[in-house]
């Protein structure tokens, strides 16, 4: 599927849904070694679940804070968020098609940007509670889409 078709599909899908909630479903961090750390390495896995009542996207973040010269992590953290969309028209039948590519494009363009501020806040909260420097993730750029 080319880019313009993905964009068109995700925009069409956006017309059908309303953002219901962004919710943290897992939030954890562990201090493994003392130190302030200099690099944050994060991996993000995304998934979707579609029901008759809701379209949900789940973003699972796992990461670690490391020193620049060392590979051993100082802090390990994980954070999972679920972004829930509901039909704009409650009586709509087959409100969202089950097309995988279409749902992926929508997740890229809408769900991940909706979740990202909560990701930034969550990462900063976990690290600051563990005595690490107050890391702030950079702004979301088009190249950062999933």
């Amino acid at each position: 599927m080319n880019d313009s078709m993905s964009t068109r599909d995700s925009l069409a899908l956006a017309e059908l849904v309303e953002l219901q909630d962004v919710s943290a479903v897992a939030f954890s961090g562990q201090r493994l070694k003392p130190g302030r750390g200099s690099n944050l390495q994060l991996s993000v896995a995304a998934g979707f679940a579609l029901t008759e009542q809701a379209l949900s996207y789940k973003f699972d973040l796992d990461g670690s804070l490391v020193d620049v010269d060392e590979n051993d992590p100082l802090v390990q953290l994980s954070l999972s968020l679920v972004v829930t969309y509901v039909p704009r028209n409650a009586n709509a039948e087959n409100w969202v098609g089950g097309d995988h590519e279409r749902l992926k494009a929508f997740g890229d363009s809408f769900a991940w940007p909706a979740a990202y501020p909560f990701v930034r806040e969550g990462v900063t909260a976990i690290l600051s509670r563990l005595g690490a420097d107050a890391y702030q993730l950079p702004m979301l750029r088009p190249s950062d889409l999933l």
Binding site: L42, S43, A46, Y57, G63, Y135, P138, D144
Partner: peptide
């Protein structure tokens, strides 16, 4: 259903 995975480094 998995959609993909990617890495971020600051």
């Amino acid at each position: 259903t998995p959609l993909g995975k990617r890495m971020f480094t600051t």
